[in-house]
Design a protein around this nucleic acid. Structure first.
Lengths: 221, 221
DNA sequence: CGCAAAATGAACCAACTGGTTAATTGAGTC
DNA sequence: GACTCAATTAACCAGTTGGTTCATTTTGCG
């Protein structure tokens, strides 16, 4: 989209300008898409390079090898997604409303990031071999739990949530519903029809998700 | 494990015996494991052949090509899993008990078939390209919905389940919870600790699953 | 300017990998 | 017991793919 090659200024042979960070970011963006679409072994380095504004040589120059590129793409994906979650402000809401909003947001957020979901699926297929190596990612996720802990503890104190649960189990439930909705959309549609993947169907599932979690946590239905 | 090559009976060169069905089944079993472990593009035909009691040529002889083998392995996996579900008998139970038993069973059943879960994950990564082609599989799944419909309708008539839901949405919820528990076990453990993957943790999640679904469907919590 | 280091491009390569060819052996059949 | 066809083996092959070599350009700097 931007130039450095399209600007045919002086000589016939276009002059190129150095832009290390731009090149890195460009490669990473393409890699994310390709790995997400085709998996680690399914993605082709030549294809990635072709879709880049630079060359294959540069990928190896900056990322070492295929797995190095995949690792960085995975990290980038996690960072990007977790960043999108920061905008949520739940502290001032009463527990039930806060939890409801969190579920609705998570459901939507997963939906809006199918590339990320697919990378996580791929990572699970690889037994988390690369996620395992990235300490950076692990730290990003502690916030999610403490966020729920705040809401849940307040809810228990207020007498609207039942005691005996843990933030982790609540997070697990929210994740399961939101993740599955994206990860298995295709096979589920093929086996049981496409109704739940329409806009109306998704709205229905989103509402179901909120109700499910709220009823699970609430003291009385 | 069995012979036909190990039985060095007569001449020094071991004689082989024809066993088409055995060879097919052997290949399919190995293929299922390899595809499940490594994905479609990740699995190597040479590796599959090596783990077989027969040769690579036989794979092409019986299955045509790699994708043909994958397709048959996928079908075999679905058949095997759906077969395991038949043993369940819910007709005589009251609605709540029936649903609870169904959830518990599904949760366990998914846990006991990680290979199948992984194949479905892989299939989703491939946008269901192969599941799409298999009409045989699609028919197997209609039973799951009607099973829930029976339970749900009876529950609504009895006044213990709330009206306005659909069997499909209930099945979706049960699947989401049971599937995610296996599919994302590894990354979830890496990010949030291994507690929920212990025996105690899984028992807890299984109970949570039952409660979650029951509360979602029930008229009052 | 002149020079070293970083950044980039184009062609190249060895190994892997899905798939095949050609020849051999077993099993029914008349 | 010759004949036919399915089942099986071992060696082979061509295209793909991750990765590299080498030369060239740009940039920062004294």
């Amino acid at each position: 989209m931007d130039d450095s090659l399209t600007s045919e200024t002086g000589t016939n042979r276009a002059r190129w300008k150095q832009d290390p960070e731009g090149v890195r970011a460009d490669i990473l963006a393409v890699a994310l898409e390709e790995f997400s679409r085709n998996g680690l072994s399914g993605a082709r380095m030549d294809d990635i390079a072709a879709k880049t504004r630079t060359s294959k040589r540069m990928i190896y120059y900056y990322f070492g090898d295929k797995e190095g590129l995949y690792r960085k793409a995975l990290e980038a994906a996690y960072k990007k997604v977790r960043k999108g979650e920061e905008e949520l402000d739940l502290e001032h809401l009463p527990p039930k409303a806060a939890l409801e909003r969190l579920v609705g947001f998570t459901f939507d957020h997963h939906r809006k990031n199918p590339d990320f979901i697919r990378l996580v699926m791929i990572e699970n297929i690889h037994h988390g071999r690369f996620l395992e190596q990235s300490d950076a990612i692990k730290k990003l996720n502690e916030a999610a739990i403490s966020q729920i802990r705040n809401i849940y503890d307040k809810g228990v104190r207020d007498g609207v949530f039942r005691a005996g649960l843990t933030p982790l189990r609540i997070h697990w439930l929210i994740s399961a519903i939101s993740f599955f909705n994206v990860s298995n959309a295709r096979t589920f549609s093929l086996l049981f029809g496409n109704d739940l993947q329409t806009e109306a169907g998704q709205a229905c599932l989103s509402a179901d998700a909120c109700q499910t979690v709220l009823k699970f946590v609430s003291k009385e239905g």
